[in-house]
Simulated assay, not measured.
Amino acid sequence: MGLAKRLAALAAYVPAGGVVADIGTDHAYLPIFLIEAGISKKVIASDLRPGPLESATRAVEERHLKDRIDLRLGDGLQTLGPGEAEVLVLAGIGGNTIKEILAAKPDVLKSVNRLIMQPMADAGDLRIWLAGNGWKIISERLINEDGRLYQIVVAEPGRELFDDELYLELGPRLIERRDPLLNVYLGRIIDQYERALNGVAAGKNNAAREKARRLKAKLERVREVAKRCL
């Protein structure tokens, strides 16, 4: 089974031989690939919505994989018991939602040795949460699919050491390894800050002026990082 570029990049981070839980599986494309490629011995695939899970069930049954892919309906990690999965994949979900999913089930996380995440937004907030909750970011990658940039963040239990929270927000491993799409990514972040600054610059009250001051300072720091990455 072929995969979209983003899903193929996620699959590349799945260690061979373990049990994977794909949270928010949608049509189960990733679980099917992991089994058919011989990467995983079993995948637990869950989704909050009945519709996508019905589609996933049909796809799994058509490929005769019901004994290898366990489909479950439910919210986040509520479908998992402690020790059931060693690897969690959380893709196509907002970064703050991923934080909430992980924080809600610490008993499940105890047996997990790798998190493979693709936050659709708020990736910086997610990284900060990971660093503050015993997870080290071991790898990151940017994927350009149909003109949209996706971030992949991979973490394992450990201590994330950092001197500057800005680098944690932007992606410490992206910066360290000079991801091929890093300059495009940083350019888009700079554009976002410039638009936000323009939106508050006309404010006359003290709160607006203070917000503009903070945004301008952050913008300058991101520009400095971008210059060093050229």
Rank of each mutant, 00 (worst) to 15 (best):
204 K>T: 12
170 L>T: 00
206 N>E: 08
179 D>I: 08
175 I>D: 06
159 R>K: 15
179 D>A: 05
190 I>V: 15
145 E>H: 06
167 Y>F: 15
210 E>F: 13
168 L>V: 13
175 I>G: 06
181 L>A: 02
162 F>V: 06
172 P>V: 01
207 A>Q: 13
203 G>Q: 05
164 D>R: 14
169 E>I: 01
169 E>A: 00
206 N>L: 14
144 N>P: 09
173 R>I: 04
168 L>A: 03
217 A>C: 02
173 R>E: 09
213 R>Q: 08
194 E>F: 11
159 R>C: 12
181 L>V: 00
156 E>S: 12
196 A>K: 08
195 R>V: 03
215 L>G: 13
143 I>C: 14
191 D>K: 07
142 L>R: 05
137 I>A: 09
140 E>T: 08
137 I>D: 06
189 I>R: 06
147 G>Q: 02
165 E>G: 03
158 G>T: 10
180 P>V: 03
199 G>L: 13
137 I>L: 12
214 R>A: 15
161 L>P: 03
190 I>T: 12
173 R>W: 03
179 D>S: 08
149 L>N: 03
206 N>S: 12
172 P>L: 02
152 I>N: 00
187 G>K: 07
203 G>C: 04
188 R>D: 10
172 P>G: 00
190 I>F: 11
186 L>K: 06
150 Y>A: 00
184 V>C: 07
181 L>S: 02
195 R>E: 09
174 L>S: 03
165 E>Y: 02
198 N>W: 05
140 E>K: 05
164 D>Y: 09
175 I>E: 02
180 P>A: 06
210 E>T: 12
206 N>G: 04
153 V>Q: 01
177 R>D: 05
161 L>R: 12
164 D>T: 02
167 Y>W: 14
165 E>N: 02
164 D>H: 10
196 A>Q: 10
153 V>P: 00
164 D>W: 05
164 D>G: 03
184 V>F: 14
168 L>Q: 09
173 R>T: 00
151 Q>T: 03
155 A>P: 15
155 A>F: 15
141 R>C: 04
201 A>E: 07
148 R>L: 10
154 V>E: 01
144 N>D: 15
169 E>T: 01
213 R>F: 05
158 G>Q: 10
208 A>T: 11
171 G>L: 00
196 A>V: 01
194 E>W: 06
213 R>H: 11
209 R>Y: 00
209 R>P: 03
182 L>K: 02
169 E>C: 02
164 D>A: 07
182 L>D: 07
206 N>W: 08
183 N>H: 14
142 L>E: 01
146 D>E: 14
207 A>S: 14
187 G>Y: 05
156 E>Y: 05
184 V>M: 12
197 L>P: 01
196 A>M: 11
205 N>V: 04
215 L>A: 11
194 E>L: 09
161 L>D: 11
168 L>P: 10
157 P>H: 13
137 I>K: 08
162 F>W: 07
191 D>I: 01
212 A>W: 15
183 N>A: 11
156 E>W: 07
172 P>D: 00
192 Q>W: 08
216 K>A: 12
202 A>R: 15
196 A>T: 04
183 N>R: 14
